[in-house]
Design a protein around this nucleic acid. Structure first.
Length: 315
RNA sequence: CGCGGAGUAGAGCAAUCCGGUAGCUCGUCGGGCUCAUAACCCGGAGGUUGUAGGUUCAAAUCCUAUCUCCGCAA
């Protein structure tokens, strides 16, 4: 089967890899144009492009698919099926309807929940106990197509957005293969989504990382692990931003004001809004490297009673 | 040349402005002490102060260049 692949970030890589390894005829790979990255603004190719180049697969990086531009490329590649995994652009209708088997999208949530840009993070931010991947037959809407396959996975209390990313990208690849197999053998059974239960999530912003200590310890813990390792959660210590990379829940309770440091030996134990304390175990001060809280405390005395504040209160 | 911070003992920091025996907390090693604690007391080891030049009687510190790491912004 002639397949065109569309994807850009790390999440898409396992999918493309298994397509190649299973001998599918990948006739072309679409991804976003190279972008300047990092402090030096070095032009960096997306991860998917690098993999494609290793296998000598043709890479296409159009800035737009609209106005027939995308369709023209498809007519050149003549794919029977298009697989889309975190590509990053909306596909126009003429593009969607070109391939014999249409376009299939691999989405990292249990649709119709968390349509949109950052489903993995929101599953953790909201404290969900399970998430998964869904493959859909794409239509013109954003993640609104009929469901082909679903694979669920539990979210453990230790999971971070990063660890789930890893898990779901692999699960996504497996589910994609199964879906393609269904299509090849005429077993596909598209089921419409329950649109009344749909939720949509947007792009993450840095601002989401600002910790509001009046929230419960559980909510704050979800925030820290849901935003790890990007964009990350943070708070303010003596007017300086302190990034919180890792933290763990404790059974310690305290009647102190939310944000108060109640212990600062091996970790920073901070009182939250519901009276429970959360232990900050890996932190990073502005301009410094990330380090274990115990290391941080050797060089920075944080007296018990110090109060951590949110950006809003700083301003 | 987008803005800024930082390289000092195994770890985290101080001393740098104003040049003069590199210090603190922790770890580590040895000894002591206690029914006991993230215990406490005593002692030791561990450094070409990122690199290369320059100024000076003397440079972690001042000057020049260079490498690396990091925060913001994008």
């Amino acid at each position: 089967m002639r397949i065109a692949f569309m994807g850009t970030p790390d999440f898409s890589v396992p999918c493309l890899r298994v397509l190649i390894e299973h001998g599918y005829d990948v006739v072309g790979v679409f991804c976003q144009p190279d972008k300047p990255v990092g402090r030096k603004q070095i032009l960096t190719p997306p991860p998917v492009k690098e993999l494609a180049l290793q296998y000598g697969i043709r890479v296409l990086q159009p800035t737009t698919l609209r106005g027939g531009a995308g369709l023209a490329l498809l007519q050149e590649l003549e794919p029977e099926l298009v697989i889309v995994v975190a590509y990053g652009k909306i596909l126009p209708q003429d593009f969607l309807s070109y391939p014999k088997y249409g376009c299939v999208n691999v989405h990292a949530s249990l649709l119709p929940k968390y349509r949109g840009a950052s489903p993995i993070h929101w599953a953790i931010l909201n404290g969900d106990s399970e998430t998964g991947v869904t493959t859909i037959q794409m239509d013109a809407g954003m993640d609104t197509g009929d469901i082909l396959r679903v694979a669920k996975v539990p979210i453990s209390p230790d999971d971070t957005a990063e660890s789930l990313f890893e898990t779901l990208s692999v699960l996504g690849a497996e589910t994609m293969l199964a879906t393609i197999d269904d299509i090849e053998h005429g077993r596909a059974n598209p089921t419409p989504q329950d649109h009344t239960r749909a939720t949509t999530v947007g792009l993450l912003t840095k601002q989401l990382g600002d910790i509001d200590w009046t929230k419960s310890a559980l909510q704050i813990h979800n925030q820290i692990r849901g935003l790890y390792s990007w964009p990350g959660a943070y708070t303010f210590l003596d007017g300086m931003m302190l990034k919180i990379h890792k933290a763990s829940l404790t059974n310690v309770t305290s009647a102190k004001a939310p944000g108060t440091v109640v212990q600062s030996k091996d970790s920073l134990l901070v009182c939250c809004g519901d009276g429970r304390c959360i232990a900050l175990t890996e932190v990073q001060l502005v301009g410094k490297k990330r380090m274990a809280a115990a290391d941080f405390l050797r060089g920075h005395a944080v007296p018990v009673g110090t109060i951590l504040t949110s950006a809003e209160k700083e301003a």
